[in-house]
Nucleic acid binder design. Structure first.
Lengths: 216, 216
DNA sequence: CCAAAGTGACCGCTCGGTAAGTTACCCGAC
DNA sequence: GTCGGGTAACTTACCGAGCGGTCACTTTGG
């Protein structure tokens, strides 16, 4: 990290270019941390997954925290962008379906990204926790806007209730992603269609209303 | 564990009776494992929380796994009983509310019990994983029955969809418990009332239907 | 005085992280 | 063309800390 990184193959280059190796390590780290969590993940195993040894991890990323942080930033950015892009359009139940569809598409073949942001084994303070909290808060903010607009017709809902709904909503997203992890043969589109079907059954009237509004 | 336990104070008894110390340790362990998870939890910290030293933990429970298993059995039994007791009555949305209310009551001042059963840092095999899986499966079975009866009016729902709904339902329960952990000033009854209010807003028609049926 | 309760010190292991040495590559000299 | 030599890439071997777990010893109370 202290040395000047080279973007192209240069003198002394052995094996593969720095960028490629970096990607390989990041991919391995996302896999390891996504499955075993921050606390349970081991840098040596990340190295083995990437086909190198532990000191290389430290040559490239400096520390376990910094490595996790890099993965976290990529995952968090991807998720925030996906969710933000789905917030346009009508403020009804269809937005929830659109959001989940966007998340599914962003996460396709990268299912561990969600766990990276919502990892429960992160240290309770420090920069890692702060970064993860920032992404969660940003996602929460986006979700809360949707929830607020959705609940707008019901002014009797107090703020704490709205906060609970937002929390429940992300619990639902978490559960959907977790279910997907146990059924990896499903595609993102199939997952989105399945969720839409389920919503239609669970909230028939609200769904019919939004469906009608969308088609009318 | 190998020695004959004494239920009352006897010769050589120092400090407090065995049963009391056992409870103290179990309480400390549930706290530690509930907050830090199985992998992150340390027997030495459990001992410190209980006001003794590490070898006592092993005198009383033999191993970290055995200690966790004892906590897990208590938590799992409590939760299964609570959920099972709420499965009587009409098979509509009100059953979900009743179930969550029962869970909230069972968990009052023992919020970590839920994490004990759904701890993600448990080893991927072995007796601990088996035990936790058994409790999850039992809870899932109870939940699936409710979901099936609830979805009974919609025969077009395929089995995989029902499985997803069950998963989403427990994701919701998890999220509700997690929200409670962040708002510890709420009582179990307040939490139940809050959830009921939220359900009434989110699924107005279904809720009105079950409400009407319950009162008619 | 004796048995049970309780502890300090230790073992082997794995962790995150590091220092020092080895290997492979590019490039200029011949 | 090939042949060192310098530099970046990479590895082996190690450190201190904390883990689960154990043993020999001391304290305590009937």
């Amino acid at each position: 990290m202290s040395k000047q990184p080279r973007t192209t193959q240069g003198v002394g280059t052995k094996g593969m270019p720095r960028k490629d190796r970096e990607r390989l390590i990041l991919e391995a780290a996302a896999e390891e941390f996504g499955v075993k969590g921050y606390a349970g993940g081991s840098t040596a195993r990340v190295a083995a997954l990437a086909g190198i040894t532990k000191p290389m991890i430290y040559e490239y990323f400096g520390s376990k925290d910094s490595l996790y942080l890099t993965c976290l930033d990529e995952a968090g950015t991807r998720l925030v962008e996906a969710v933000a892009s789905a917030q346009q359009g009508p403020s009804d139940l269809s937005r929830a379906v659109r959001t989940l569809e966007a998340v599914f598409r962003a996460l396709a073949s990268r299912l561990h990204d969600w766990e990276l942001v919502y990892d429960a084994t992160l240290p309770p303070d420090g920069p890692l926790h702060d970064a993860a909290t920032a992404y969660r808060r940003e996602l929460n903010r986006l979700g809360a806007v949707g929830v607020a607009e959705f609940l707008h017709a019901s002014p009797e809902v107090e703020p704490l209730d709205a906060d609970l709904v937002t929390h429940l909503w992300y619990g639902t997203v978490s559960a959907a992603v977790s279910w997907w992890r146990h059924h990896p043969e499903q595609t993102a589109d199939e997952m989105a269609a399945r969720f839409e079907r389920v919503v239609a059954v669970l909230c028939p009237d609200l769904w019919a209303a939004s469906d009608q509004r969308r088609q009318g």
